[in-house]
Simulated assay, not measured.
Amino acid sequence: MTVKAKLLAYLLDHPGHFHTGPELADHFQVSRNAIWKAVKQLETEGYGIIRHPKDGYALENLNHAIDPNQIRHGLQKVWPELKVYYQESTTSTNDLGRKHAADHPNQPALFISSEQTAGRGRRGRSFYSSLSQGLYFSLVMTPPSGANNELVASMTIASASAYAETLSSYLSDDVMIKWVNDLFYQGKKVVGILTEATFDMESQTISHLVLGIGSNLAGDFAKENAENQTVAGTLFGPQLPGTFNTNDLITNFVIKFKSYYDDLSSLAFLDYYRSHLLGKNQWVNYTENHKNYRGKILDVTDLGHLSIETPEGKVRILVSGEVSFSSQQFADQ
């Protein structure tokens, strides 16, 4: 851990309190010059630090740009073993997550990026990742102890509930959930979620998961095709609010998701998911095993499957891996 990272953690633990250079140097067993350099680094990164000739240094304002140290500090009591990494641009955070899972199978990690050059969604579809203010991150984890494969599969549902609930606290309206893995805000698709699992053939269980989330925070789609302009939207309009801290958003989501993860069998995430299910009681078109169907959305089962009423009045249960819905029919609801 660098002097800068240690100093930031210490200042975050003591917000508004002043600490002299000699006091900090003695605490971290480094020179006063090392403390001065660390303070300069934090200021360059966007942290507001008050300097007083007698009292020393105090943290006044947080850096709103993505900072793994700030996120790691916010999660230290909830998920202390979680590693946090940031790259300004990458092919796909899920790719980073899958490599990490192969190299470090028991180490949970969070990979974050502001741009993806090869993002993807379900069934290998590309995910729009060049928005001026996008956010892309992937959580790498092993399944909760004792969870069977069907329960583990519900973690996509759990993540959608956790992220929709977290986002709604920053916005004027609720974020809605299109089954199974898209989030809509004010009638536009703003978030895509992709969960990729590794299956252990010997034990016949899921050994680890990579949960990827792509968010359209702010910007516009002027250069996109007409279909994307109709469906896609942003959470905050053309620009992020000046007070918005991306680190807080990520931290608050992980805290909420971890609460569901730790008690997955209780299915506590289902109530929120069901109450924010997009298109409930709406007739929609969908594709299942390359065939086209029509049905009315009824609800989500305890296993996270979708119950549909057919035109003949019968109820069918749809499984996410076999079914796809066009987002167009949910836009502007």
Rank of each mutant, 00 (worst) to 15 (best):
T234F: 06
A222V: 11
L209E: 08
E150F: 13
E150T: 14
A226L: 10
S203D: 12
S154W: 00
K189T: 05
S203G: 06
F184M: 09
L194A: 05
A147L: 11
E227A: 08
Q204L: 12
M141G: 06
I157Y: 06
L139I: 13
S169R: 15
S138F: 05
S203C: 04
V190L: 04
Q229D: 07
I206W: 12
L151Q: 14
K178M: 07
S129L: 08
T198D: 15
S154R: 12
G192L: 06
L209P: 12
N228S: 07
G187E: 11
I193F: 07
S130V: 09
E165A: 11
V180G: 00
S145K: 13
V152F: 08
F184Y: 15
F199R: 12
L135C: 10
S168K: 10
A226C: 00
I193Y: 03
G219T: 04
T198N: 14
S138G: 06
S130M: 10
G212E: 07
F221D: 01
V140S: 06
W179M: 08
S172D: 15
L209V: 15
T230E: 12
S130N: 13
L211Y: 01
P143W: 11
N225D: 15
S126G: 00
L183H: 04
V180P: 08
V152P: 11
T234C: 05
T166S: 14
D182Y: 04
T142H: 07
S159Y: 09
S145G: 05
Q186C: 14
G134T: 11
L131K: 07
E196K: 08
V191D: 02
Q229G: 05
Q133A: 12
S168C: 11
T195C: 11
A153N: 15
A232D: 00
V140Y: 00
S168V: 08
Y136S: 04
V231G: 00
A153P: 00
G187I: 02
L167F: 11
T230Q: 13
G214D: 04
S132L: 08
V175K: 08
L235F: 09
A158E: 02
D220I: 01
M155E: 10
K188F: 06
F236C: 05
S159C: 14
G212W: 02
I177M: 09
G187Q: 09
Y136G: 01
V231N: 01
T234G: 03
V175F: 04
T205L: 14
K189C: 04
A164R: 01
L217G: 02
G146M: 14
E202M: 12
